[in-house]
Simulated assay, not measured.
Amino acid sequence: MLRGTARPRGGAAAGRPYTSGEGAGRAGACVRVCVRGGGVGVAGSGSEGRWRERRDRGPRVGALSGAAAMAAAAYGAHGAQRPDEYQKELYETANRYHLLHSLALLAAPHCRRPAWCAGSLLCAGIGLFCLPLYYHGLSGDPGLNRAAPLGGTLLILGWGALAL
């Protein structure tokens, strides 16, 4: 990567790093590409690196969610004490949906327009759908199950946002 100082038309140094486009007249002044802190953006836009941070955050959240789903699966298979078959089925359903939607979170940064929207809807849906089922499956208390339909709706909306 080349680094230097951008020169405005008056010839005085502006003090901005650049990689290309200098000396190309008006087109070069409008579409100057900057490299700052590992991110790439348009000079003067203030967004140098923000889009890259957002794209990097989605796979991390999906990977952490998947790791949590696998840990919950291991706990459900080896450590959880459930008295009846219904609680075991609830726990396994929560875990299946948690792992499936963690994989969808990995794809959220690659959707065209509302990448933050799809990821946010899927995260909220996982929290509001899977956590009450995990809780009911482990404790036998159905007190949080009212949130599950809202969580399921958010998961559906998250898949719809992925399709946009």
Results as ranks from 00 to 15, higher is better:
M1W: 01
L106W: 06
A67L: 15
C34M: 01
G58Y: 12
E89T: 12
A94Y: 13
R146Y: 14
A68C: 13
A69C: 09
G11Q: 07
H98S: 08
A77Y: 01
H78T: 09
G160L: 15
W159G: 15
A67F: 11
S102Y: 04
A6D: 13
R7C: 11
V31F: 13
G44Q: 02
R32P: 00
C111D: 02
G23I: 12
L122N: 03
A27E: 08
G21S: 06
P109K: 11
Y18A: 06
A107T: 11
G62S: 05
A43I: 00
T153Q: 03
D56K: 12
G58T: 02
A115V: 10
A124E: 11
G125K: 10
Y75P: 01
E92K: 13
L100Q: 03
A68D: 01
A107E: 04
R32V: 01
R32T: 12
G15Y: 14
H98M: 12
L150S: 05
A73W: 02
E48H: 00
W51E: 14
C123D: 05
A147D: 00
G41W: 02
W116D: 15
R26P: 10
R60D: 05
M70W: 03
L106M: 10
G66M: 10
L64Y: 03
A115M: 09
S45E: 13
G28I: 10
A68E: 01
P8T: 14
A27H: 06
T5L: 05
C123P: 00
G37Q: 00
I156E: 04
V40G: 03
V42P: 08
L144K: 03
L133E: 08
V42K: 08
G28R: 07
Y75A: 14
M70L: 13
L106V: 06
A68H: 02
A63E: 07
K88D: 04
G25W: 11
A43L: 09
G125P: 12
R26Q: 14
A94E: 10
C123W: 01
G25E: 09
E85I: 02
